[in-house]
């Protein structure tokens, strides 16, 4: 994994470290399929907006950059919404309310401001992709946790996203499970996110510890 990818997927993960875009992250992660749909939509939007923001970089002035970004992001999302409504109507009916919600995702504004407005086209597109991917992965993991604990299944209602063959994707992990409501309700999203953040911090601490050990070992050897 290159340094570029690693920063975006792990060290500086949009959801776990920067805590950006919590609104869609918590609201739409009640099962894997919803999370996946929203994740794909978010990656698409952030790649396109990063591309456009980088494209108009020569025109952007410090004083008016925020309204420019808002205009661009809102337009891109609206165009995507209309196109989906016209040509992917089934998907639109499922993700319909979440699409306008993408506008509120600070991840998109954040990447436009922090990266795309200062960097060339191709790396901005890559940045958007990996940042979005990092966000989408966390979202899918939270969705899986909540769905598994809440309903005992994974990939339920996959046919909403993948059509008829999705019917066979649903995995019933815990049969005859009576459900654990809290996981599906909003508090479950906070718990799941907190657990993930804690796990990530623990792993980072372990990695640091190891690094220190290696450093001190090399230090003693050289002395």
């Amino acid at each position: 994994m290159s340094e570029f990818m690693r920063t975006r997927l792990w060290d500086n993960n949009a959801a776990l470290v920067q805590m950006l875009g919590l609104c869609p992250l918590l609201a739409v992660s009640n099962n894997v399929i919803n999370a996946l749909g929203m994740g794909i939509a978010t990656v698409t939007v952030v790649v396109i907006t990063n591309f456009l923001v980088s494209l108009i970089r020569p025109m952007t002035r410090q004083e008016i950059r925020i309204p420019l970004f808002v205009l661009l992001i809102a337009s891109v999302v609206t165009v995507i919404e209309m196109v989906m409504n016209a040509y992917f109507h089934q998907l639109y009916l499922i993700l319909g309310i979440f699409i306008p919600l993408i506008v509120t995702n600070c991840l998109i504004m954040g990447r436009a401001e922090a990266y795309a407005s200062k960097n060339p086209l191709w790396s901005s597109v890559k940045d958007g992709f990996y940042m979005g991917l990092g966000f989408a992965l966390v979202m899918v993991i939270i969705g899986a946790m909540r769905e598994l604990i809440g309903q005992g299944t994974l990939f339920s209602q996959a046919h909403l996203l993948f059509g008829d063959w999705g019917e066979h994707l649903t995995l019933t992990i815990i049969p005859e499970y009576s459900g654990f409501l809290v996981a599906v309700l909003p508090p479950g999203a906070f718990f799941a996110l907190a657990i993930l953040v804690a796990l990530k911090n623990k792993r980072d601490a372990q990695l640091k510890q190891k690094e220190k050990q290696v450093q001190s070992e090399t230090a003693t050897e050289s002395s």
Binding site: T60, R61, P67, S75, N85, A86
Partner: peptide
């Protein structure tokens, strides 16, 4: 500054109108 803003606004509005026109029947 206002010129840049106006230009971008016109462009984005045009794109939105165009998309709307193209998709509304469907």
């Amino acid at each position: 500054l206002p010129v840049i803003l106006a230009v971008i606004t016109v462009i984005t509005s045009a794109v939105l109108m165009l998309t709307h026109e193209l998709t509304k029947d469907t």
